[in-house]
Design a protein around this nucleic acid. Sequence first.
RNA 1: CGGGGCGUAGCUCAGCCUGGUAGAGCGCACGGUUCGGGACCGUGAGGCCGGAGGUUCAAAUCCUCUCGCCCCGACCA
Length: 578
Amino acid sequence: MRWSNYYLMTAREAPRDAEVVSHQLMARAGLVRRLAAGIYTMQPAGWRTMRKLMAIVRREMERAGAVELSMPAIQPAELWEESGRWFKYGAELLRMEDRHGRRFCFGPTHEEVITDLVRRDVKSYRQMPLNLFQIQTKFRDEIRPRFGLMRGREFIMKDAYSFDADEEGLDRSYQAMYDAYSRIFEACGLEYSVVEADQGAIGGSSSHEFMVLADTGESAIASCAACGYGANVERAEVGTLAQPAEGGGNAGGDGPRRVSTPGATTVAEVAGMLEVDRTLVVKTLIYETDDGLAAVAIRGDREVNEVKLLNVLGGLGLRLASAEQVAEATGGPLGFSGPVGLSPEVRLVVDESARALADFVCGANAGDEHLVSVRWDRDVAGARPLEWVDVMTAEAADPCPRCSAGQLRISRGIEVGHIFKLGTAYSESMNCTFTDEQGRLRPAEMGCYGLGIGRTAAAAIEQGHDDDGIVWPVPLAPFTVVLSSLDPGDEAVRSAADGLYEELEAALAPGGFDVLYDDRRERPGVKFKDGDLVGFPVRVVVGARSLRAGGAEVSNRQDGEREVVPLDGVPQAVLSRL
RNA sequence: CGGGGCGUAGCUCAGCCUGGUAGAGCGCACGGUUCGGGACCGUGAGGCCGGAGGUUCAAAUCCUCUCGCCCCGACCA
C-alpha cells in the first residue's frame, strides 16, 4: 500500500476527551474516531489491526473445533423474556420497538439466540459436542462508557457457545476454549494472566477471565506467587486471617456492656475513643436487597465486597440502606449499628473475618452508644442462627486461600476475555433438550466464551507504547513495515524505493506481513514522527544519504536499533527482525 | 441517577467576569526558501461562537430552557 493513496491521517494533538493513553494514541494515529459516547469508527489502519486480530482468533477457534456463524444483532423481546433476562439484564439492554410496536433489543450477547437455534436443530447426543462462534458487533448501554475502545457501548466481540451432552463434555469444551484463548493472547504477543472470576449477569457455575496486565486496567486481580492462585478481586477468597490484637480491658464479664461513644460513627473513631485495635471492632452495614433489609457484620479493618455479598444474598442488586431504613432495622441512627438486637425481619450474615473475635466492640443500635465485650455465641446466636459467609474484599498481603505459604498480591489488568461454564441455566429455561443414549430427554450443558476485539487492541497499546507513540506487537500492527522514501524528488531514490517496495511486498506476503510505502511528499521529520506514532514494528528508510552509505537503513520501532544494508539484502534483513 | 466541568475554524485553545464589526497556534491551499526527527517567510480560504427563547439600541459575552460531550461518584455506618 502506498501511503499517498491510503487513508491514514495523524494528528499532533489528541482530542480533549481522550483520557487513557491507548485512546489518545489511537486517535492521534488516525486509527479510530469517536462518533458518539462509546461509539467509534474504525478508520482503515485501525481496522487492519482489528482484522489481523480477528484472523488470529478465527484460526485458533477453528483449531479448537469451533464453527463460525453469524447471528442477528437485533433480537426479539420474546426470546429474552423466555430466558428471564428481558427484566434481569436491566438498563444496559438497549430496547426498541419497530413500526408495529413489536419489541426488540440490540444484542449485548447471544445466549438466547444461539440456544433458540440449537434447540431447533439438535435433538440427539450424537450431534454433540458443538461449539459455535461469531465475531460481531454488540451493544451494551453502559452507564458510563469511557477510555475509548476499552469500555465502549458498541464494540466488536468474538462470542462462542458450546453444547455438550454431559458435564464431562462441558469440562472438555471449556478446557479447549481455555487453551485456545491462551494461544490467542500468546500469539498476539501480550503479557496476560488467567484468573478466577465472578459470573455476574451471565450466570453459571464457574468462569475464568483473561487479563492483559496493565496499571491502567479497570480490574483488580489478587494473585499468589507461591502457588499460582489468581482471582478477580470481585471474587478472590482470603485465607484465615491472623487476629493480631487481644480483647484487652474489655475481656471477660458476664455480658455486653454499654459504653458512651458520642459522635463516633466510624470504626476508626470508635477504636480510638475506646483505645482498642480496629480488628476488635465489628462493623455492621445495613443493605437494601430485593428481599428486604439485610445486615452484614465484618471485622472493623475489613471492607465488604459487594459482588460477593450479592452472590450470598441473591437477587439482582443491593445498595446501602438509607438512614430511615437503618432506623427501621436497628432502632438506632446511622453509624451505631450492631448485630445485637436487630429486628427479626432483618437477615444477618457475618463475615468469616469476624469469626475468631471474642469480647469485641460493636454498635449498640442506639445513638452515641457502643457495646463492648460482645460474644457471638452468647450474645448474638441466642436470638438467631448465625450465618457465616465470605464477603470480605481481598487486600494485599492477605494469606493465600489455597496454600499456607503465600501472600496475596494485588495488581491491575484489562479483562480481554471471559469464559463461563453455564451448565443448564439457559437450556432449561429455554427448553433446549436432546435425547441421550438411554432415550431420556435432557437439557444441554452449555458454555459461553467472550473475547473483546477492540479492547484487546487497546490493551496491546496500553502495554506497548512510549513517548513517541504506539509500539505494536508484530502480529497486530496495521502494517508490519513502513518503507520511507526521504527524497521522492530524487530520481535515484525514487526508483530504488519503488523497487524495494515491490521486493518487500513479495518477500513479506508469504509470512502474512505487509508494507506501507511512505511515498508522500513530506519532509523526513514528518515521516519519522508519523511512523513512530502509528508504531510500525520495522522501518526501512531510503534516501540520498542512505544510498551513499550503501543501501537502505533498517530499524526496529521497539529498540531503535538500526543498520544500513545493501538494497538487495533489505528483504532478508527485515524478515530477520520479525 | 447525583456532583463538577466543557461546547468558539478540521484539532488544541484564548476572548465571556466588565455586552459594541470573531482571535491565536497547529492543520489546509498557493508562492518562495528549505530538505535525515513534526522547517521558515509571505499570501489566502475556512466560524448562524452547540440549539431555542429572553433582556438590550446592540449578545460569543447577561438570563432561562434544551441538546451534546468529559470527569468524579453512585460505597463502608
